[in-house]
C-alpha cells in the first residue's frame, strides 16, 4: 500500500517504537523496499532512538548461545542458488559445502555462454552426455568437464593452477549420494586431459563434478581428501 506523504514521519516513528498493530507493521514492512521516503523516515527514526539501545548495560553472554546460533546457520544462498548436494569431500579441513556461496550472476552468465559455445563446437564431433563448468569459490570459471558416459571424460583447464611437485589434480564426480564421490582420474601435470574412468551410470543433469588437489598418485582413501579447486554441476547439452 502507499501511505499518505504527510503521514510518513508519524508512521515511521510508530513503526520504530512498535506502536503499530501487527497488520499495520506488516504493511510498513511490505512498502519499505519500494518507498524511498518511508525508508528514509524509518532510518532516521531508528537513528534518533538508537542511543537508548546502545547505552544499555550489556549482560554477560555465554558461548552456548553462540553455539546454538552457529549450528542453526544455513549455508549462505545467493541469487540463482542451486540445491546443494551432499558434500563430496571427506576432508573436514576442505569444508565442502561451506563457503561455496553461489556464484555471481556474471560468472553464471559467462558459464552459460561457455556451455552454449562448447555444445555448439561439439556438435561436429561426438556429443558428451553432460558438460559441467567448474567454478572456484569466487565464482570464476576454472575448468570444463565433458563426460561422454562411455568411461571417457575430458577436462579442459581454463585457469592457471599452482600444483606443488608432490601433489596432483584429481577429477571427481558424484553419480549418487549412495555411491559417493568417484574418481574419474588424475591429471598428468597441469593441463587438459582425456580421462578413462571407471564404468559408471550414465551421467545425469545436475550431477556434481569437482577437481581437488590430492597427493601425488591420487587420494589415498579413494575419496576426495584435499582442498576443492573448483566444482560445478552437469548440464545436458541442448
Amino acid at each position: 500500500m502507499r501511505f499518505a506523504r504527510n503521514d510518513i514521519p508519524d508512521i515511521a516513528d510508530d513503526y520504530v517504537l512498535g506502536l503499530l498493530e501487527t497488520a499495520q507493521a506488516e504493511e510498513v514492512e511490505a512498502a519499505l523496499p519500494h518507498d524511498a521516503q518511508l525508508k528514509a523516515a524509518v532510518a532516521a527514526s531508528r537513528e534518533r532512538f538508537l542511543p537508548l539501545d546502545t547505552a544499555a548495560e550489556p549482560v554477560a553472554t555465554d558461548t552456548l548461545l553462540w553455539q546454538r546460533i552457529e549450528t542453526a546457520l544455513p549455508a549462505q544462498p545467493g541469487p540463482g542458488a542451486r540445491p546443494k548436494p551432499a558434500p563430496a569431500n571427506d576432508n573436514p579441513g576442505a569444508k565442502a559445502g561451506h563457503g561455496w556461496r553461489t556464484t555471481a550472476i556474471a560468472a553464471m552468465a559467462a558459464s552459460v555462454l561457455l556451455v552454449a559455445g562448447l555444445a555448439a563446437s561439439l556438435m561436429r564431433t561426438v556429443d558428451p552426455v553432460v558438460v559441467a563448468v567448474l567454478l572456484n569459490e569466487a565464482g570464476e570459471v576454472q575448468a570444463v568437464v565433458e563426460d561422454f558416459g562411455n568411461e571417457n571424460a575430458t577436462v579442459r583447464l581454463l585457469a592457471d593452477f599452482e600444483v606443488p611437485s608432490d601433489k596432483t589434480i584429481e577429477v571427481w564426480t558424484l553419480p549418487s549420494k549412495d555411491t559417493g564421490p568417484v574418481s574419474l582420474g588424475l591429471l598428468d601435470g597441469i593441463r587438459s586431459a582425456r580421462l578413462a574412468g571407471p564404468a559408471l551410470p550414465r551421467p545425469k543433469d545436475n550431477q556434481l563434478y569437482e577437481i581437488t588437489l590430492e597427493q601425488a598418485g591420487g587420494s589415498p582413501t579413494g575419496r576426495p581428501t584435499g582442498p576443492i579447486l573448483a566444482k560445478g554441476y552437469a548440464q545436458l547439452p541442448r
Binding site: 528514509a40 532510518a43 531508528r46
Partner: peptide
C-alpha cells in the same frame, strides 16, 4: 539507505522481541 548497519542489527532484534 536503511540507516546505519548497527541500527539495522538492533532493529532486527527489536522487531523479533516486539
Amino acid at each position: 539507505s536503511q540507516g546505519s548497519a548497527r541500527g539495522w542489527i538492533y532493529a532486527i532484534v527489536r522487531n523479533r522481541a516486539l
